[in-house]
Design a protein around this nucleic acid. Structure first.
Length: 272
DNA sequence: ACTGGCTCCTGAGGGC
DNA sequence: TGCCCTCAGGAGCCAG
């Protein structure tokens, strides 16, 4: 399963206790070619530096140092876990950040759609972050906000909802799930949906994501687990990946349709 | 301003 | 059983 926002949040909560207050002793990249190359100077820049904090914006993790920060993205197959230094790297484990605790933060990413970048200044103005929409669990994200943003958008509401400039962290799975929960057809034009229905949708996004994060928190027992699992979890999905199955609400068959190059699942009986 | 298409990469899964 | 082929998927980027 690809990391969506709940998985990134769970990763953040899992690694944070191992990182904050520690200093870097060593950085190693075995494979530098991610979506962008890993900066070559990290191995000389990072050792000796205390880690001030690790935070999240959208699906990016931000590891702050006194003179800059590392920006991490898990792409669609990335994961982080804490290992002991004598753990031999397995395939696709592309980089290690060794800590003065004696532990190692290890990154695995078979498809290499992820990122590890260095930047200075305020993360909020980083080119990859500056134009992102609000966090879905923040008060800035509401039905009123969605309705206002949608007025000039004629594309399918599902594509609209997945646009990071509208709201961050709503990936392909949770877009289908949220639209089902709100009873809105994924193909409906974004500017043809009333405010009251956007209120339902915003609430659905918040509750679906919050439930997944809560599930992650309870599922994730030990971020240093040696099985390589970073704590990804199985959320009870109502429609995603269930084409042909009966709708849990009305019993009609769940449909699959490609919208904006993405697989979309919905119930034609419940969603309009 | 907005939209659709392309791109990176590899594992999974379907078909035979 | 096993091989081969297709395709999914986050999100930046570009062209129209």
């Amino acid at each position: 399963m690809m990391p969506e926002l709940p998985e990134v949040e769970t990763t953040l909560r899992g690694v944070r206790p191992h990182l904050e207050g520690r200093a870097v002793t060593h950085f190693t990249a075995r494979q530098s070619r991610l979506r962008q190359p890993i900066p070559e100077d990290l191995a000389t820049r990072l050792p000796g530096q205390p880690i001030l904090s690790i935070t999240r914006r959208a699906k990016y993790l931000i590891v702050a140092f006194s003179d800059g920060y590392c920006l991490i993205h898990l792409g669609m197959s990335g994961s982080l876990r804490i290992v002991s230094p004598d753990t031999p790297p397995k395939p696709h484990e592309h980089w290690d950040l060794a800590l003065d605790s004696g532990q190692v933060l290890r990154y695995r990413d078979p498809r290499r759609f992820g990122l590890l970048l260095w930047a200075t200044g305020d993360p909020a103005v980083h080119p990859l972050l500056a134009h992102l929409g609000p966090e879905p669990l923040s008060d800035r994200f509401s039905g009123t906000y969605l309705h206002r943003m949608a007025q000039t958008r004629k594309s399918a509401v599902k594509a609209f909802l997945m646009d990071g400039k509208v709201v961050v962290g709503v990936g392909n799975i949770y877009a289908s799930e949220s639209l089902f929960a709100a009873g809105i057809s994924p193909t409906r034009a974004a500017n043809r949906i009333a405010l009251a229905r956007y209120e339902s949708l915003a609430q659905a996004v918040k509750s679906v994501l919050a439930a997944a994060i809560a599930q992650g928190g309870t599922t994730l027992r030990d971020f240093t687990a040696s099985d390589g699992s970073p704590g990804y979890f199985r959320i009870a999905l109502q429609v995603y990946g269930r084409a042909g199955d009966p709708c849990p609400r009305c019993g009609d068959a769940i449909q699959r349709k490609v919208i904006a190059q993405r697989a979309t699942y919905y119930c034609p009986g419940c969603q309009h």
